[in-house]
Simulated assay, not measured.
Amino acid sequence: MDSVTGDDSTLREDWRTPHRSRLSPDHPQFEEISSRHAAAIEQNVPTYTDPASGFSVFTARFLARRAYCCASGCRHCPYEV
């Protein structure tokens, strides 16, 4: 397991995947987004660039290490919100 906090019990069971209500597997750029997310985690950087908007997006690992939900609707939010 990729433990990131002292208490991982607050994370969604599938916290490493995008929050389904914020990025559907049917999204036309799902594969590209998933690839960029995985690369950012591999490189241990907190964000990647969204291919459509150009905005920076936080990775699930970064958000989990922060240890709380900010309630901003993050794409990779690891918490149940």
Rank of each mutant, 00 (worst) to 15 (best):
D2W: 08
T49R: 13
E42R: 13
D8V: 13
Y48S: 00
R20C: 08
E80C: 06
Y68K: 10
W15V: 04
P28M: 08
F30M: 03
F58S: 02
R22Y: 05
N44Q: 15
C74H: 06
R36G: 10
E31N: 06
C77D: 02
A52D: 02
T17L: 15
S24D: 14
L63S: 01
R65W: 03
Q43K: 10
C74K: 02
D26L: 15
H76K: 02
T49F: 09
P78I: 03
V45N: 15
H76T: 03
T49P: 01
R36I: 08
Y68W: 14
P18L: 12
E32C: 05
A39G: 05
S9E: 11
S53G: 07
Y48M: 00
P46G: 04
P46I: 01
R16Y: 08
S34M: 15
P51K: 03
S35E: 07
V57A: 04
T5D: 11
V4A: 10
S24W: 07
V45I: 14
P25E: 09
G54A: 10
T59P: 06
A60G: 10
V57I: 05
D2G: 05
V45P: 03
D50E: 12
I41L: 14
C69Y: 01
D8N: 14
D50L: 06
S56Y: 07
Q29E: 07
V57Y: 04
D2M: 07
R65H: 10
V57W: 02
A67V: 05
D26K: 11
S24T: 14
S9I: 14
I33V: 11
Y79I: 02
P28C: 10
P28W: 03
P18M: 09
C77N: 05
P78Y: 06
Q43W: 05
Q29M: 08
C70H: 08
D26S: 12
R75Y: 05
A40T: 00
C70V: 14
N44G: 05
Q29F: 01
V81F: 00
H19R: 13
R61K: 06
E13L: 13
A67K: 14
F55D: 10
W15E: 00
C77F: 00
I41V: 10
R16A: 07
